[in-house]
Design a protein around this nucleic acid. Structure first.
Ligand code: FES
Ligand code: FES
Lengths: 157, 157
DNA sequence: TGATACAGTACCATTTTAGTCCTATTAGAC
DNA sequence: GTCTAATAGGACTAAAATGGTACTGTATCA
């Protein structure tokens, strides 16, 4: 099945430790100890998250990292995009026209649609849900794979 | 974003060429020519598809491959599983208990649920839809990410 | 029995991933 | 000011996954 990278998993774990009940600021060292992930790696991940704007950093003494926005406003899709970059579901999807098979292949577009559908689904999964601290059964994101829809026939967006 | 492997894309292209209006049987060589994929690679993919039970093979003269079931009964999930194996979304998901971080990490389970949700979504996307030969806007799989649901609270399954 | 076509698998090259390390920069404390 | 705690940004390496090829064996049919 589809796979998220280890780094993305790390990122989630780290973010979860920053998503306390009120906003906390923690140093990379502290987070490394809390999570059990190697310091260097923790640091690397945090830098990526900061570049992507998911965490805010402060340098110098008493510095550290904190969530840039509330946990409820950070989605699984955000995390994945931050760590893994915006690579598409298929290779052809990202560089259209580059693929040799494109002539005999009517498949690319479809995968691409699956792609956005999944992405959209993941965008509805918030960090609060990933950490499990989100209380009772929440309003379920009514996600609909719109693969079948002809272009423009947006179904239940 | 999440990525399917090139091999999976190949598989889809190949399957698409087997999914004519009525069941066709084609040799690996023919499929390689039709699709533009290298013969060796085509062959490899076909073997995997046959092991997974998606295509049926006949050996010897006049042999070849054909779909093992109607295109409408083959899903994107089937294809991915066949080619990429049953690896989970996270590493921890597949070998529970193996992960060092498992103590400080309450994330694994959640990803796993995301995993099954996506898998379920992909199971509703049929080969007919991937090839685009499925006529008008089809009944949309009413897929629901059930991440928020507490265990047992199955939402709109 | 020979030709055709699949089955299995071992193999290699390339790319991607995971992880480390080093240097620069910023902020605060004394 | 300058020392120290912390992040920023890379370069770099080792290990694994991926994509692709080749070879050997086996089944089927004319
Ligand atoms: S394989 Fe590249 S466009 Fe379909
Ligand atoms: S990282 Fe392995 S269980 Fe969460």
């Amino acid at each position: 099945m589809l796979r998220i990278s280890k780094m993305t998993d790390y990122a989630t774990v780290i973010l979860a430790h920053l998503a306390g009940d009120e906003p906390v600021r923690r140093t990379a060292v502290a987070l490394a100890e809390l999570t059990g992930i190697g310091l260097a790696t923790t640091s690397k991940v945090l830098k990526e998250l900061q570049r992507a704007g998911l965490v805010a950093s402060t340098r110098g003494a008493h510095g550290g990292y904190a969530l840039a926005r509330p946990a409820a406003a950070i989605s699984a899709a955000d995390i994945i995009d931050a760590v893994e970059g915006p690579v598409g579901l298929t290779e052809c999807a990202t560089h259209p026209g580059q693929c040799d098979l494109e002539s005999s292949c009517r498949v690319g577009r479809s995968w691409q649609r699956v792609n956005v559908a999944i992405h959209r689904a993941l965008a509805d999964v918030k960090l609060t849900q990933l950490t499990g601290r989100d209380g009772a059964a929440m309003p379920v994101p009514d996600l609909t794979i719109l693969l079948g829809a002809r272009p423009g026939v947006r179904v239940r967006a």
